[in-house]
Design a protein around this nucleic acid. Structure first.
Lengths: 165, 165
DNA sequence: TATTGTTATACTCTATAACTATA
DNA sequence: TATAGTTATAGAGTATAACAATA
């Protein structure tokens, strides 16, 4: 286990990287907050799902997720259809409109990233992504034991399912 | 440069690690928010400084920093004395009370961390810290060119001064 | 005129708790 | 009784803009 000073430094960076997230949030189109953008991305990547699953992937309370989803549904970017298997749930899906918006978003983000950290290698990006996922798993999942080494090649994530986000 | 999907994954993790920061924030004593804690830590580590410098280290607007500082000064945990060299500025310092509180904080945090990611090696913690700092530098500092390799040993940071946070 | 801070305002994200509907 | 989701409320964090004081 690392020493206290190292952990304090880690926590400080954890707060400070927020400025990157905020900067990325600034280029979003009207009506699309950072939270909304993440929801769109997850629905595009993992396909239709329920609120609870989405909340897991977002690492956020279900009530928060519910608000994001309501917002996106009001915009017509996602669709909430009843879950035939469970009357309490609804299935979330991107609408064609939502897909179009997401494509715009992705384009803008790619442009911004192309300007900035363009000297990052695949390996660096993968490693940072993996380490953040693993850190999250350490906190989210008490029984976590990510002995699986860092991603030497494939963009593998820690084994905990909630982290395969 | 990595491809778009990798960057999107990076951004998603960037949002999701927020849950770690929030969990750490939950163990803070009354009156001490997450932002306050970071201010205390920075003043302890880097010694007395002005608001502007503190805002840089926090990677946050000066107005935000001003509010945190006002809060901590009201609690008596830090002290704002006039800057003899510049009448517009004030010098921020931890008070003995502030130091005591910080020590408590550090203790609690260490306990929490000892429960959770206790399987992290020094190397892992250092690497993650360094990569986050570098990511921030890529955005904060347009002319950044962090060719300096990752930290093979010492907890070195990217060369940009604003990142030696 | 430019810079350092401060304050007012508004917006986003978040959690907790109370509530509804279904399992 | 337990679970999925919603809503109301409250609090933290943040940025922008207008302002004051000093350089």
């Amino acid at each position: 286990m690392a020493d206290r000073a190292q952990y304090e430094e880690l926590m400080r960076q954890l707060s400070a990287v927020g400025c990157v997230r905020r900067e990325l949030g600034r280029i979003l189109p009207d009506g699309c907050s950072s939270g909304s953008a993440t929801v769109l991305t997850l629905l595009a990547r993992d396909g239709e799902m329920r609120i609870g699953r989405l909340a897991e992937l977002l690492a956020v309370d279900m009530s928060v997720t519910s608000r994001h989803v309501t917002h996106l549904a009001a915009l017509g970017w996602i669709d909430r259809s009843p879950d035939p298997a469970d009357g309490r749930s609804r299935i979330l899906r991107l609408t064609p409109e939502g897909r179009a918006r997401l494509a715009e978003l992705s384009e803008r983000t790619a442009q911004l990233l192309a300007q900035r950290p363009n000297d990052w290698s695949d390996e660096d990006v993968r490693r940072l992504t993996w380490l953040m996922a693993r850190l999250r798993a350490s906190f989210h999942d008490p029984r976590s034991d990510p002995r699986a080494g860092p991603p030497e090649d494939g963009a593998r994530s820690p084994r905990t399912s909630a982290v395969t986000t």
